[in-house]
Every structure is written in structure tokens, then in C-alpha cells.
Amino acid sequence: MEQQVSYTLDSTLDTVDHAEESATRIATELGFGEDEVMQISMAVREGAVNAVLHGNQYAPDKKVTLAFERTPEDLVITIRDQGRGIDLNGIPNPLAPENLLKTSGRGIFLMRSFMDVVEIRPSQTGTEVKLIKHVHVNSVGHKEDSQ
């Protein structure tokens, strides 16, 4: 992977699959373990689902931007939509007893469960979600450094 790669994508379910597949490929290339690759790809999928469904609401004129950046310490993934922004105070806790049997509302919870840092910045012109996974010592880059 280059230091940074980004995609501008339509607001479709294909974008969700593309985002997940890209995350899987890039996380694998960077040497993350199988469980971490699954966590990263699932977090990115959930972020993309939110961008396509809740942010852009499938609008054909609105795009989703997906960017992967490798820093010495982290894999940083940024997902932006062009929706009206979400109300972070209005997100119910999916683990609360009264919400356990709800059929939706677990996406952000899963992102926070699987990533080291999740930053969500809503605005009138869209929401930006930043997902960060720390790169560990046994990742590909460090292996090469030690050879």
C-alpha cells in the first residue's frame, strides 16, 4: 500500500462491499493478524453502511469518500459522507436492556469495539468518521526493518 490511498464512491451497497474488501486487503498487506483484519474490515463496513444509508441515504448525487493512511504508528481510515450529519447525543446504547432487542443501532458500537480510536465529526455538510488501529511490532513494516 502507498502511504495514502483514497476512493470516491457512489452511495450504493456495492460501495459497502468495496470498502470492506479494500480494508481487508490493506490490513492484510500491512501485516495485521487474522482477527485484527476481521475487526478492521468489519469496522470499515459499518462505517460505510452508515455513510451510504444514514448519511447519504442512497442519494445518487452524493458521494462517499474512503481514505486509508499508513503512519508509523497507525492505520488511519477516514470515511466521509455528504449527508446532514448525525446527532451523537441521539445514539442509544445498544447494550441497555431496553435496546437489546432492537434490530438496528449497533454499527457505531461495533466500530468502537473493534478499533483503538473512533472519532466521529458530524456537520451540516456531512459526517466524517476516523477509525484508527495501532500498528503492532510484528507488522510487515517492522519485520522488514529487522531483516
Binding site: M42, R45, E46, V49, L101, K102, T103, S104, R106, G107, L110
Partner: peptide
């Protein structure tokens, strides 16, 4: 399975 799939399992159950 993703969060939508989890939601479908809950929906099937209820």
C-alpha cells in the same frame, strides 16, 4: 455477519 445481520437474527427471534 454484520450489524444488519445481527439485526435480522433479532428480528427473526422476536
Amino acid at each position: 455477519i454484520d450489524s444488519s445481520g445481527i439485526g435480522e437474527l433479532v428480528s427473526a427471534f422476536t
